[in-house]
Design a protein around this nucleic acid. Structure first.
Lengths: 242, 242
DNA sequence: CGCTCAATTGAGCAACTTCAAAATTAGTGG
DNA sequence: CCACTAATTTTGAAGTTGCTCAATTGAGCG
């Protein structure tokens, strides 16, 4: 089920200039020289993407590379039996679509904004220049290698951990990576369905587990917001203490 | 549980020379020029590795890159709860240890020979030369990208498919990738425990499912060897037909 | 033959899913 | 702001899947 486009990625033009962009220091674009950066800067577009909007869809041929400037997309894939499986949630500074770019294949994942986002789009033509830049390929290689490691880890967790452990792990992960507001609630809010699509469970199973966690006073809920109250217990659950 | 070393990777010296090696055409070494290849060739060692023997172990700092010349290693990882999860089975021509090499971290996987193997070991020192070779990094990038895609696919299957489907998928995969002998039995034989470590199930669950498949005349068994009799039915099971 | 390890089978139990229904929340137009 | 509708969340209960434990059989080996 794909959500409707609410806008058409309106272009916004901020202060511009990849040279001055802090975000690029977070990814493979960090080591490029100013000339290359200027070329990219000239051809790129900065897009505003609303919460829930599709950035690209599984099976599409991407026309370029996306650099996440603000917000979080979820990267997911529809399984053979039609269920949506969220593979991971990306963050500020990450590049999307590099895999497609390198292999020349269509993308195997869909990207949907979990919150309001700002994304820089760098068209394909500029990218061949990047692929020929040794510094770029090298740091991309490092990035993909780490992705691969994490992907392996996720596989092991999915295969060996039960729903309770996977939920605990997810909550800890979210807390670590997306931070909390003043009251301790995790900044990224996910619907129960989204959470179950990460955990690979039925939504009821997921809901019940969240409900259990609340009853045991491990977490607090406020609408879609979740706050971990008892970290120690949560870690123990993740590690399989019964 | 790690199997004992039966030998100590005795070095064997065949006709030698990476320049003349057909295997390298299967991986990122294919586009290197003869000078670089000669350097690698001089420093490499060809090792004989017995079935069941450990090639490297999760957590080790690898001292170089491994190129699979013959045979199949299984790449696995011990989960938090102590179970061994096989991530994938590599084949002739694949490079092992490139991830470690690129990121500089310790390896996150163990490699164990599933059959008698021949592996070329290229020491670390030679590798810095490789990493600076644009052709090498580029084709490595392509390879890792594909790995990443497959890893995503595996995650989705693990999350969304039941044991029956996963077993059917594995058997089809083995049949496609490792071929059969004259009588149709899959060339790669895995113990039930190894199969269950791929599927992420208990060994009993795995055994029972294999037994069911045989009773339903979908497969035939001969010791550890498996032969798919009814491919159509097997594909249907994989796709979730009940 | 006795030892060890892999494979198999059975029975009971725990985890998870599915379907159905109720309660709550969110969104929309007046 | 309220009322109405739609969507999401929650809960219950029954059914299925898969796991664990224990016992048995079989195969390979000195």
């Amino acid at each position: 089920m794909v959500r409707k486009l609410k806008n058409k990625h309106p272009k916004i033009d901020k202060e511009n200039g990849c040279e001055n962009c802090i975000i690029r220091h977070l990814n493979a674009l960090k080591d490029l020289d100013n000339i290359t950066l200027a070329h990219i800067s000239d051809s790129k577009e900065t897009l505003a993407i609303d919460k829930g909007e599709l950035i690209f869809k599984e099976g599409q041929t991407l026309k370029g590379l996306y650099c996440v400037k603000q917000g979080n997309p979820r990267l997911s894939k529809i399984s053979d039996n039609g269920k949506d499986q969220i593979i991971r949630i990306a963050s500020k500074g990450e590049l999307l679509g590099y895999r497609t770019l390198v292999s020349g294949n269509k993308t195997n994942l869909s990207a949907v904004a979990l919150n309001n986002m700002e994304v820089c789009f760098i068209p394909k033509e500029q990218i061949s220049k990047l692929i020929d830049d040794k510094r770029f390929t090298k740091s991309l290689l490092v990035f993909i290698s780490n992705e691969l490691k994490e992907s392996d880890d996720r596989l092991v967790n999915m295969a060996q951990q039960n729903v309770k452990q996977r939920l605990a792990q997810l909550l800890i992960y979210l807390d670590n990576n997306f931070g909390c507001d003043k009251k301790g609630f995790i900044n990224l809010s996910l619907s129960r369905i989204e959470i179950s699509n990460i955990l690979g469970t039925s939504k009821e199973g997921c809901i019940r587990m969240i409900s259990n966690f609340r009853k045991e006073n491990l977490i607090d809920l406020k609408g879609k917001k979740i706050k971990i109250i008892n970290f120690d217990a949560m870690v123990k659950i993740e590690l399989g203490f019964t």
